[in-house]
């Protein structure tokens, strides 16, 4: 199994099983805890605090006004649409792909699996460039007539690319965990493959699926490099929430940039909280 998100899953699921806690607090233990907290504090929390402080200093009213501007609303709405498309398409693909990669046996399965991994490993800038090359004027798939440069289809393709593996890996991980017994039982009870999928397999992976879809949405909302390269952040046309932030900070319209950054951070933290909650439910199951 292979994804960023997946690893987060391992940890949290297993954390349900707690080893015997140690009670004695020695100086060394306290020191190590302090070091870890200091590290996470400097690396993660200080930047976050800076954003929060800026938000407070700017004032919620000012931020709300910036976010209510038509171009800001358009950018955020566009990001939501892209996220929704990614959730639907890569959700369906993720379930199907997980079944194919975990349950099927065929020549080329490992290669397919490795290609799925690759979508995580490469830089989003390269993703954008690759789509420009494939669908651009002299590209291989130019005859398909999909408008990529500075156009919505390009943004969709980029978003699909960067969110490809999340649902697949989360669902695949659960499929491997639960094994084939349930599906075999369904077969001996006379269920067709279709019945078995809807009534046994899908309910069994539902928490993994929910986690995968949430991660897909978070990743889609946050995508920047690929949509910038392909879309060019044209205000009111190809701007997404992230490219809006970029454009605003280039134009030194800081309040708009920070406002949108705060909105995105809040949205993604809500999604993260949902994931944490889902993982604990999954652990209880």
């Amino acid at each position: 199994m292979t994804s960023v998100a997946l690893h987060a899953a391992d940890g949290v699921v297993l954390a349900g099983r707690s080893p015997a806690p140690r009670s004695s607090w020695t100086l060394a233990r306290a020191a190590l805890l302090a070091v870890v907290i200091a590290y996470l504090g400097i690396v993660l929390l200080m930047p976050l605090a800076a954003l929060v402080a800026k938000g407070i200093a700017t004032g919620p009213l000012r931020i709300a006004r910036e976010l209510a501007a038509p171009e800001a609303l358009f950018a955020f709405g566009q990001s939501l649409i892209l996220a929704a498309i990614a959730v639907v398409l890569n959700g369906a693909f993720g379930v199907a792909g997980a079944i194919v990669l975990v349950r099927h046996r065929f020549v080329g399965r490992k290669i397919l699996d490795a290609i799925v991994d690759l979508s995580l490993a490469i830089s989003p800038v390269m993703t954008g460039l690759a789509f420009l090359l494939v669908f651009g004027r002299s590209g291989w798939l130019a005859p398909l007539g999909i408008k990529v440069a500075f156009a919505l289809p390009g943004l969709v393709l980029c978003t699909l690319f960067v969110t490809l593996p999340y649902t697949l890996r989360e669902v695949g991980y659960v499929l491997e965990e639960i094994g084939t017994d349930d599906e075999e039982a369904a077969a001996t009870l006379g269920a067709s493959a279709w019945q078995s999928f809807w009534r046994v397999t899908l309910p069994n992976v539902r928490y993994g699926l929910a986690v995968g879809l949430t991660l897909t949405a978070a990743r889609a909302l946050g995508e920047f490099g690929a949509v910038l390269v392909v879309g060019g952040a044209i205000s009111g046309r190809t701007q997404t929430a992230t490219t809006f932030i970029y454009a605003m900070s280039e134009e030194r319209r800081e309040a708009a940039a920070f406002g949108m950054a705060i909105a995105l951070a809040v949205a993604s933290m809500l999604l993260l909280a949902a994931v944490e909650k889902l993982k604990h439910r999954k652990g209880d199951r």
Binding site: L48, G222, F224, I245, L272
Partner: peptide, 9 residues
């Protein structure tokens, strides 16, 4: 947190 927060942010 880093899994959720957009890198641009």
């Amino acid at each position: 947190l880093p899994f959720a927060i957009p890198t641009l942010v």
